[in-house]
């Protein structure tokens, strides 16, 4: 429960993309051959990082025949046939919608409850609230996948097996520690004067919270929502164990079923891999800053 001992000293997750420019310039800059070598290493590694993903996309645009005869070939006459097969016959269309529903539902749920909780924790100095905060933050390092068996029986008891709602509740709960951690740090940064002025004008706590505080912490809300999206979208064990019917599978489980049954249908598998990955790449493209902020939020732990 290390997280509980140090509620972040520097509340806002530092953004490494906006570190002071001065640090990079000036005398540390190497010139000449050293700098060229560094460039080669860095761009070379960028190729290593991206080429496999590029091959994944290119292979999804080729036919099985082309993939078998020339695995390294380029998609000279790209075809989307594999995507059509994956989307309908492979049921990736249904899996995609399930993933979207579960992920968005869970992110909305955990962000909503965590924002309210984080605000109260930041504005109350009662000892009970400190204990509760410690309890939430202890979840940051909790390997919750190890509790899959009791979760299974809990769900079994209340009829949440094979239910997307069940997954939403579970992931929503799993997101509470991280969201409370990041949002709490933000709320603590907001000075109390605004709320005091609003209270004098007669606004109750709920109104102050919804009309003044939420707009102020919008950047943190974006970080929390975007950053939680990724692990929920990608999670495999919980839907594997908790879902039964094919029509409710999320993408990772659907993918593993498809891979098991059609191991030789390479191009359709590649298309399935792309379908599973593309939303996250799109999300990263529009919200790079939030994802990076989320990754480095762990620093203050």
């Amino acid at each position: 429960m290390t997280a509980t001992t140090t509620v972040p000293a520097a509340p806002a997750p530092s953004d490494p993309l906006r570190q002071p420019k001065a640090a990079g310039g000036g005398t540390t800059r190497r010139r000449g051959p050293g700098r060229v070598a560094a460039s080669i290493i860095l761009w070379g590694y960028a190729i290593v990082a991206l080429l496999p993903l590029l091959i994944m996309v290119m292979s999804s645009l080729r036919t099985n025949m082309q993939l078998a005869t020339d695995p390294l070939g380029l998609p000279t006459s790209p075809t989307f046939a594999a995507y059509r097969r994956a989307w309908t016959q492979g049921q990736f269309g249904a899996y995609f919608l399930n993933s979207l529903l579960v992920t968005i539902g869970a992110v909305a749920l955990s962000t909503a409850v965590s924002t309210a909780a984080a605000y109260a924790l930041a504005r109350s100095n009662s000892r009970i609230m400190r204990v509760l905060e410690a309890l939430f933050l202890s979840g940051l390092m909790l390997p919750i996948h190890l509790a899959v068996l009791p979760i299974f029986y809990l769900f079994d008891g209340v009829g949440l097996i094979d239910s997307r709602i069940g997954l939403i509740l579970l992931y929503g709960a799993g997101g509470v520690p991280f969201s409370v951690f990041v949002l709490g740090a933000f709320f603590r940064q907001v000075p109390g004067e605004l709320e005091e002025a609003a209270a004098i004008d007669g606004a109750g706590p709920w109104r102050v919270f919804t009309t003044i505080m939420i707009p102020l912490v919008r950047p943190a809300l974006a970080t929390v929502a975007v950053f939680r999206f990724v692990p929920i979208w990608n999670d495999f064990l919980f839907p594997l164990v908790l879902l039964r019917s094919d029509s409710k599978y999320t993408l990772p489980v659907g993918l593993s079923t498809f891979f098991g049954e059609h191991a030789n249908d390479y191009s359709t598998i590649f298309a399935g891999l792309v379908i599973t990955t593309l939303p996250l790449i799109a999300l990263f493209a529009i919200a790079t800053k939030q994802i990076v902020a989320g990754l480095t939020a762990g620093m203050s732990k």
Binding site: L109, S110, A112, V113, S114, A116, A117, Y119, A120, L121, R123, S124, N125, S126, I128, M129, L132, L135, F136, G139, L142, I144, L146, A147, L149, P150, I151, L154, L169, L170, G172, A173, G174, V176, P177, V180, G192, E195, E196, A199, P205, F209
Partner: peptide, 30 residues
């Protein structure tokens, strides 16, 4: 600005119930 304990409890309750039922309780029973 300080919040009264009762109000704060209402704000924390939904998160606590969710976290308690779906994370803490299974973790302890495990």
């Amino acid at each position: 600005m300080r919040m009264r304990l009762g109000t704060a409890a209402l704000f924390v309750l939904p998160a606590l119930v969710l976290f308690g039922v779906f994370i803490l309780y299974p973790m302890v029973t495990a």
